[in-house]
Design a protein around this nucleic acid. Structure first.
Lengths: 133, 133
DNA sequence: AATAATTGTAAGGTGTACCTAACAAATTGT
DNA sequence: ACAATTTGTTAGGTACACCTTACAATTATT
């Protein structure tokens, strides 16, 4: 096997995404804080982090800040970019308010195909360049 | 309580949608056939049908064709219309092939908000009327 | 009608993702 | 430094949505 394909559940993708965002913001993130952000128990975070560690997407030792690996960043970027593209399309093209756009993007980002996402990105791009409203 | 709010899981929505489609096509549908269509076991169908019956969305007696109730039709139409709107948008606006459009619509239909769906429907409508390609 | 094929259900099991409660370990405040 | 707070893990549970196996009931075939 050349590349280990590690497809994540929606749930694990959410954890990874939050870790990635903290990483991008240079914000030290501990499990308890992650639990608060995602509205789950510390126990659930504990389990989820163990899975992400076993998939080598994060590094983590109790009581330290969670860190994301290179592989983790690659995975997270895919998800996060989908999120952005969807949110953008909802806001800019469909004129949906930020809250609803984000909320829907959060769910759809986990299941939409790469191909469609690329088309949406392209479409939004063209659309916002054509129109000024 | 005036209206019983019955929000279904993605899975139950899939069962109901398949039953609705059979109903629309005047096709008698039995559990075993539904299992084949949805690629699940007869046992899983049996459980799912029991849940839909308890929610009064279908009527069902062993060895008979499954029938959908008025409430079931209302629920199913909402899902099915979301499916159509998404599929249409993917095909007509984004030029995605039917298979991928349908596949993605099948997943997204369960989680996207009514508001966004309406905007997409309106957008696709305007878009296909403006352009001839 | 008897046999074969189909359809359905029940029981028991898996995996996932949550939870609470209790406890342990580390960090922080005074 | 030591008490209080925060953080983390473990154990045991729930709920869901699947599954297989085995058996029961119905329907179709000959």
């Amino acid at each position: 096997m050349i590349t280990e394909e590690k497809s994540l559940s929606s749930g694990l993708e959410d954890y990874l995404e939050a870790i990635y965002i903290a990483h991008m913001n240079n914000k030290a993130l501990k499990g308890a804080e992650l639990a608060r952000e995602l509205n789950v128990s510390r126990a659930s975070v504990s389990e989820a982090l163990a899975k992400l560690v076993s998939k080598k997407l994060i590094n983590y030792n109790s009581y330290e800040a969670i860190s994301i690996t290179k592989d983790g960043i690659i995975q997270a970027q895919k998800i996060y970019s989908k999120h952005h593209i969807l949110e953008n399309f909802f806001e800019k093209v469909l004129k949906i308010d930020k809250a609803e756009a984000s909320e829907n993007a959060c769910k759809i980002e986990h299941i939409i195909s790469q191909n469609i996402i690329e088309k949406i990105a392209h479409f939004t791009d063209k659309y916002t360049k054509t129109r000024k409203d």
